[in-house]
């Protein structure tokens, strides 16, 4: 079902109050996508349901970001991130994603819940793109898991430089468009 399309330089921009919502099973297969998701990504419900969520993953995204995401989710924490996603036609769109574990009333993991909101594109140009590019370079230069480790280390050193934790940094960038001092 996965169709490999060539990425295009066309950007789809989210509306100010758009909320992209999707759900996956604990293994990461899509179990629900809202209409906004379909409208922006260009995939139909049938194309999405049962597929792994990385169907919309853009090659410009460093793998280390997903590594961090899975680490956070497995520890039961939420995850924040600026994510570049790919549409069915190869266009791309930037989102500010928040992923949380979905628990039922007994507290058992039923899947993951992801809400994406419109990010400030200026902030992405200023902070995120340079960071991701340097991480991608590291990942491209190395091979396998070791390269991703190095890429994670790069992100961690960036965080150390600014002196705050990852989630706090991402929320600050999303809300204020700058890093707290």
């Amino acid at each position: 079902m996965t169709r490999q399309t060539t990425p295009r330089s066309h950007e789809v921009v989210l509306g100010e109050h758009d909320l992209i919502v999707s759900k996956t099973c604990p293994k990461g297969k899509i179990t629900y996508a809202n209409r906004k998701f379909m409208a922006i990504s260009g995939y139909s419900e049938q194309q999405l349901l049962g597929q792994p969520h990385n169907i919309i993953r853009h090659p410009d995204m460093p793998k280390a970001v997903y590594r961090l995401m899975w680490k956070a989710l497995q520890q039961g924490h939420e995850f924040f991130g600026f994510v570049k996603n790919r549409c069915a036609d190869g266009s791309y769109y930037w989102v500010f994603a928040n992923v949380t574990p979905d628990l039922d009333l007994q507290g058992e993991l039923k899947g993951y819940y992801s809400v994406r909101r419109k990010p400030n594109l200026e902030t992405i140009k200023q902070f995120i793109e340079p960071l991701y590019r340097s991480m991608l370079d590291i990942e491209a230069a190395g091979q396998g898991a070791g390269a991703i480790d190095q890429s994670v280390a790069k992100l961690e050193s960036w965080l150390q430089e600014i002196g705050i934790d990852y989630c706090h940094a991402m929320i600050a960038l999303y809300q204020q468009g700058k890093l707290p001092k």
Partner: peptide, 12 residues
């Protein structure tokens, strides 16, 4: 941690 306010975007 007071640095994680609820995000209101997209909720009408």
């Amino acid at each position: 941690n007071f640095n994680r306010p609820p995000l209101s975007a997209g909720l009408p």
